[in-house]
Design a binder for these strands. Structure first.
Lengths: 216, 216, 216, 216
DNA sequence: GATGAATGAGTCTTCATTCAT
DNA sequence: AATGAATGAAGACTCATTCAT
């Protein structure tokens, strides 16, 4: 699965080689971490010499950034593609979550790069992930808002509550995705279901004005 | 707070020196990451020479492991100490969460070591954190079980559901702690309240048999 | 002046291409130095691909040698062209010096290659410059000898004195040329005048038997 | 001559090792040039491992700068020490020049570093040499001024003329020193004498109002 | 006549780790 | 109890140079 096929030394168009290198880089960064990954290892895994990696991708830092960017884009794309516009908002949310868990399960190294490595190392990198995360949160916020409007029961939902919910939902999804990847305990659909149970129910409670408070 | 005071070269009992070194190490590992942290920097920050660090802690790997272990223990201790046995289960859970958020906020480097660094690097380290996490999950599971028994309304709660809830709760707490530390957006009590709203309400729903399902 | 105009990839006669390359090389070598100059930069500045540079000029070493040779020839040519045969010897010397300073001022990179870079790096290169320098010294020696014969006043001038004078004159000229190029403090004519004041007056003194000696 | 004596691996106080390293560096930089000299070669010549060189001298750039600074200081010191304050100004100048030529002849690598290498490579380095040169020029200017006052014959000497003379004198000395080093053609005293003949006589002429001019 | 693709060899630099005292 | 001196091994990055087309 994912084994690089090219015979070493074969002349290939730049675009192809570049993709091979990035594949190798994502895998290596995802498994070893940014610092522990060596350009030597990446080059070897990609089936090319080190100078070629530098010729095409300039530096370890730029290579890592390119990986983050590519994986972030792919993940967002996958989530967007997983959402079917015609459905009611809760079903849309569910399919989006399922797509998210499916993608992260199918690209564990990419997810490791995004969720673990990119955030563990300093500022050139974290920003890219933050941007992606914000995009996701905004997307989820829209869906929740729509759902609240569709199923209008009881008092208005404050923007602040919606934002909090979205934030927590994405955070929980990230946490669950990592857990699922590492332990293999749940499938994508199960994970999506679990999250819906928390989020949707929580949303319902808020809309009905029920809250937990320390005083009672 | 954190400024090392000892004059360099002063003879000091081993235990004290060891604590200074580990303090320096936690700070350095937490801020730079395992690979980027250098023994030189740690020794200097601790106000001792490098050979002394090796004399007491043997190797970078062992030093890191010791840090993880110490910080994990401290965190668990803090949570346990935050729980008052006499209270009803939901209040106990709340105070435990508050203690968790308080501790992570007060020891950001320790939390960074546990939550980010230890899991980002290979197998010698991740295991220690996993063990701590399991301990926390077990603890939370107990509380949730007790709460369910106390507030017995409706059908029995399946063990599986309780486990899922506990798992999710801890995951969400971790995610929130990181977020709170990085952005400083919420206080410990606020974070605990937010989580209770999700978890407790979710629990209530489950106990009353309400679930979200894709089919409807 | 200096801006390379050719569209990349256009077929051009070999001689033209070769000149473009050497122009680029002189500029790069002069500004960066032999080691710091990269074939990549030279090729790009010349507007051709690297293999073409190798096809025409074989290696970095040969390219550098070719540059030195070309610039040396050009400098000598300029000096010779500046001397008008009919004039009295001192005027000839003056016009020669002026031509020297003019040329070095107009070709700063070429002069840097000859005066700085070629002598700074080992033996394949220094020899070429030495040869050129010897040619210049010989030329000046001739002029000085002629002048001495023309203005015969007092005792014979020993060959040794003439040689010393010529040597010193060329050395001083080189030093002044570098200084003028770097600081832009004097024009070519001013520099020539300054040198004449030293050299010619020194010559006059020698011819009249006046010397400085430590004993008095 | 100059062979480093220390047995490899022997523990030595830092100051001693540092001097060994700088000696090796001056030699290597002087012969190979800044770029061509490799830290490996320097370390080996100094009889230590590369990391030690970095531990003590930080980087190639700093090492080179340190060399330049040390050699510049040594040269200035030598010239100052060679001048005996009690003598008449012309004798002082002569002894100073002799000291200069003696020192450069005895430290050819140091002189190569200062005169060739430091000026051939960019701005971190050239500045140090320029500063030293300015110091020398100022020193010589003083002497010439004093001499002019001592031997007051004829019209006042303009400051501008004195400055020009000093500048030219130092330039000529530098050029001669290089020539003497490379060819071994003249001794220090001969070189000093030659220069005095030019400079002193030139000075005398200027003081007597005699000048060469193109018009006649 | 001209180039895109590719690399072996080498350079600077850092780091965990150990002696000898 | 504590340290100044020292290094083997490895990692990021560059460059002159060559094929195949």
């Amino acid at each position: 699965m994912g084994a690089v096929k090219s015979a070493k030394g074969k002349r290939m168009p730049r675009a192809v080689r570049e993709r091979q290198m990035m594949d190798a880089a994502v895998r290596t960064f995802g498994q070893r971490g940014y610092r522990a990954a060596s350009m030597d290892e990446i080059a070897e895994l990609a089936g090319v010499s080190k100078p070629l990696v530098y010729l095409y991708l300039n530096s370890k830092e730029e290579l890592f950034t390119a990986c983050i960017r590519r994986e972030a884009q792919a993940l967002i794309e996958a989530v967007r593609a997983g959402v079917e516009p015609g459905l009611p908002a809760d079903r849309q949310l569910w399919t989006g979550l399922a797509a998210f868990f499916t993608h992260t399960a199918q690209h564990p190294d990419g997810w490791a790069v995004l969720h673990r490595q990119a955030r563990t190392h300093g500022e050139p990198f974290a920003a890219v992930v933050t941007a992606m995360r914000d995009e996701l949160v905004a997307f989820v916020t829209t869906l929740i808002g729509a759902a609240a409007r569709e199923a209008h029961r009881g008092p208005e939902l404050a923007d602040r509550d919606v934002a909090g919910l979205a934030q927590a939902l994405v955070g929980a999804a990230e946490s669950l995705a990592g857990w699922a990847n590492e332990t293999g305990a749940v499938t994508a659909k199960e994970a999506a279901g679990t999250l819906m149970n928390f989020a949707w129910m929580g949303l319902g409670n808020l809309m009905e004005g029920r809250r937990w408070s320390p005083s009672r």
